[in-house]
């Protein structure tokens, strides 16, 4: 039997509704991430950068400032080794951040970077960064967290100061949860 007009309309509209649900769940988040990456929106910096040898532009000096802050309820002491540094575009620079876990339990932290001005976000490359991994500190343990970066020589002319900020999050529970899930999964498989 051929479908009635109502059944056809209903089928089309249901497809539209399901499509929009899929759009919201599976398209919008990656689209937003891609959009942020392209525009530097929210100062999201990219992942690990493979250093390519480039000429160091000694004519130009850019001030890079470091900010460290803790997310709510994160008890660690967390501060940059130096507050600011003047660099030439193209040169690889090393710096450290200091972290200490003053509590009496082992904790895992995750630093999330953000950079202003947004238009510089795509010209700030990190070849090594503690933010690529989670940091695990035992009770009372101190750590020096390394960062190596290169400011791209193509940095837009108007930018003379770049501020890189890290916010440290407590992800201990999140990881404990994931570890538990993994354990139960493997137990089930075993």
């Amino acid at each position: 039997m051929a479908l009635s007009a109502n059944a056809k309309t209903t089928a089309k509209l249901t497809t539209l509704a399901v499509g929009m649900l899929g759009f919201a769940l599976f398209v919008m988040p990656p689209l937003y991430d891609a959009f942020c990456e392209i525009t530097g929106l929210n100062g999201k910096t990219g992942g690990r950068y493979e250093a390519v040898p480039a000429a160091v532009d000694t004519e130009r000096t850019v001030k890079v400032q470091f900010v460290a802050s803790n997310n709510e309820n994160m008890p660690w002491e967390f501060k940059p080794g130096m507050v600011e540094i003047r660099v030439h575009p193209g040169e690889a620079v090393d710096t450290v951040f200091h972290a200490r876990n003053p509590t009496d339990r082992e904790m895992i932290g995750q630093a999330i970077p953000s950079l202003v001005p947004f238009k510089a976000a795509n010209y700030f490359h990190k070849t090594e960064c503690f933010c690529f991994n989670q940091q695990s500190l035992a009770a009372g343990e101190t750590a020096e967290l390394g960062l190596r970066f290169i400011v791209d020589p193509d940095l837009p002319a108007g930018v003379n100061t770049i501020t890189l900020s890290y916010t440290l999050f407590d992800v201990t529970e999140r990881f404990a949860k994931q570890a538990n899930n993994k354990n139960t999964d493997s137990e089930r498989e075993g």
Binding site: L13, L16, A17, G19, M20, L21, A24, L25
Partner: peptide, 14 residues
């Protein structure tokens, strides 16, 4: 409604 109520459902699902 058909276009955006599923988006609301999506955001609460997330």
């Amino acid at each position: 409604l058909i276009a955006v109520m599923p988006v609301l459902a999506g955001v609460v699902t997330m």
